[in-house]
């Protein structure tokens, strides 16, 4: 599931469920470093319409920890996604 090797200067990003449907991928690499607060903007540029259709209802993890980047006062907007990090887009879950 996770990419085998992340090229230098990049982080990996994983897409699940609706995020995977929308991008047509389960993962890819994006240039690092990237301010967490700019992540959705960056994805919207690559996949026009993704922010409203998918990302608005998604959570984000960096290295398996949830970060909060939703809204102007979110605590993790200035967190910097580093080379080699694993970011994941987490749509609303549906187990059971």
């Amino acid at each position: 599931m996770a990419p085998v090797k992340v090229p230098s200067g990049h982080f990996s990003i994983l897409y699940f469920a609706a995020a995977s449907s929308f991008t047509g991928k389960s993962s890819e690499h994006i240039a690092a470093p990237l301010r967490a607060g700019s992540l959705f903007e960056e994805l919207e540029k690559k996949y026009p319409g993704m922010e409203a259709k998918v990302l608005a209802s998604c959570a984000v993890t960096v290295n398996l920890d949830y970060i909060e980047i939703d809204g102007g006062n979110a605590p993790d907007l200035d967190l910097v996604i580093q080379e080699g990090d694993e970011v994941a887009i987490i749509p609303p879950v549906s187990s059971g």
């Binding site: 699940f16 449907s21 749509p91 609303p92 879950v93 549906s94 187990s95 059971g96």
Partner: peptide, 29 residues
């Protein structure tokens, strides 16, 4: 345990409808 799992576990269900496409469900919808 069941309610917490359905609310939180990072697992997604794809339902394929007869004669149609698959739909990713969200438990809270």
């Amino acid at each position: 345990a069941l309610e917490e799992t359905k609310a939180k576990a990072e697992i997604w269900k794809l339902e394929r409808f007869v004669g149609g496409e698959g739909v990713w469900r969200a438990n809270r919808d």
